[in-house]
Amino acid sequence: MVGSVHLIKESKIKETSAILPIAVIKIKDHYGNFQTVRALIDSGSMTNFITERLSKRLRLFHRNTSLEISGLNPMKSVCNKGSVDCLVQPYHVSNPSFEFRAVITPNICSKQPSSDVIIKSYRHLKNLNFHDAQYSDAKEVDLLLGAELDPQILTGGSVMGGTDDPIAAESVFGWKFWELETIPETSSVNRDEQLCEDYFQKTYCRTETGRFMVSLQFRRDVKFLGTSYQNALKQFMSLEARLLKSPVLNSGYTEFMRDYLLSGHMTPVPPNQIHIQTSYYIPHHCVLKPESSSTKLRVVLDASADSSTGISLNDLLFIKSKLQDIVHILLNFRCYKFVFMCDIKQISMYQAFNTFGYSQNL
């Protein structure tokens, strides 16, 4: 099982260990008595688990179930030993109690270090009120409480030490140790990406409307560009013929381009500048997705179209690193209780940025 981990510094504890968010709790057995167990709190798990060892000890009623578990890379395993209904309570009080179903598995994780050793190693933990059961020697973890119960367990209190120290999180089960997941802040940009970033920082500005104004960032001289007007005109005439055959498509495309014009994303080219030497005409076409609930028609601007020299506008520009890091997004997504999702209209570099006058022809 994957949990939040923290590596204890060797200067504080002789052997490097991993701290998982463990709570000492009580679980009800078949006879109505409560037994003490150690539970791993894992907000990244979609399922609750109980070890086969604890299930037999509690003599709980087994349900015949089989579940395929997916992990990293992607690792898969099958838990086909059944499931049991559980009831747990805090170790020191009888309320609150939680009822849930747990899948039986041979093992959850390795033995965890004694809380006594951890508490004595960090100054910010010494004055917290840990109950006696947490001072026991390293023991097996027999229960995993997943994302279903996590919001009901944490109460919001926390005590933090230094940057690399574990966090004590307050929960209905008492204090437990926690380490927030973070992404290492290491730079992986290459030389071109760094040059692109430096150029942007030196040249961008903000307009009165709040938009960014930038200059196109060339890695090759614009003299390599050939003529592009005739090719763009040819594709436009082909597009016009297609639009004339479909009144619905024609209406949608015309409305899109009108909105582009009114929003200031494009401006008409003066007649005396149509054939200036240093210019690039971007062909455009439409993609139609009738099944889409938001954007049924999308206009595509093709800056990869070759000019008469076989070189396109995109060939001359720096290639910036991808803006979206899916790992970073998913980890941040888990940090908040509420999230806001939306579909942004016309999200594109062309809508978010203006270019300086000397770049608008390219």
Rank of each mutant, 00 (worst) to 15 (best):
Ser4Trp: 14
Val5Thr: 15
His6Asp: 08
Ile8Leu: 10
Glu15Tyr: 11
Ala18Glu: 12
Ala23Phe: 07
Ile25Trp: 05
Ile27Met: 09
His30Thr: 11
His30Gln: 06
Asp42Lys: 02
Ser43Met: 07
Leu58Asp: 02
Arg59Tyr: 04
Phe61Asn: 10
Phe61Lys: 14
Leu67Gly: 02
Met75Tyr: 04
Gly82Val: 03
Val84Arg: 14
Asp85Cys: 09
Pro90Cys: 01
Ser94Trp: 05
Pro96Trp: 09
Pro96Gln: 03
Ser110His: 15
Gln112Met: 15
Ser114Glu: 14
Ser115Thr: 12
Asp116Arg: 15
Ile118Trp: 10
Ile118Glu: 03
Lys120Leu: 01
His124Ile: 07
Leu128His: 06
Asn129Leu: 03
Ala138Arg: 13
Gly146Cys: 02
Ala147Pro: 07
Gln152Lys: 13
Val159Pro: 03
Glu170Gly: 01
Leu180His: 06
Thr186Ser: 11
Leu195Asn: 13
Leu195Trp: 06
Glu208His: 12
Glu208Lys: 13
Val214Tyr: 00
Gln217Met: 14
Val222Arg: 10
Leu225Glu: 00
Met237Thr: 07
Glu240His: 06
Glu240Pro: 06
Leu243Cys: 04
Ser246Asp: 15
Pro247Trp: 00
Val248Phe: 08
Asn250Arg: 08
Tyr253Leu: 01
Glu255Gly: 05
Asp259Val: 04
Leu262Phe: 05
Gly264Glu: 06
Gly264Trp: 00
Asn272Leu: 04
Asn272Tyr: 11
Ile274Gly: 10
Thr278Met: 12
Ser279Asp: 01
Tyr280Gly: 03
Ile282Tyr: 01
Thr295Gly: 06
Leu297Gly: 01
Leu301Tyr: 12
Ser304Met: 11
Leu313Phe: 07
Lys320Gln: 11
Ser321His: 12
Val327Asp: 03
Ile329Ala: 03
Tyr336Met: 09
Lys337Ile: 04
Lys337Ser: 10
Gln346His: 02
Ala352Glu: 09
Ala352His: 11
Phe353Gly: 02
Gly357Ala: 13
Gln360Phe: 09
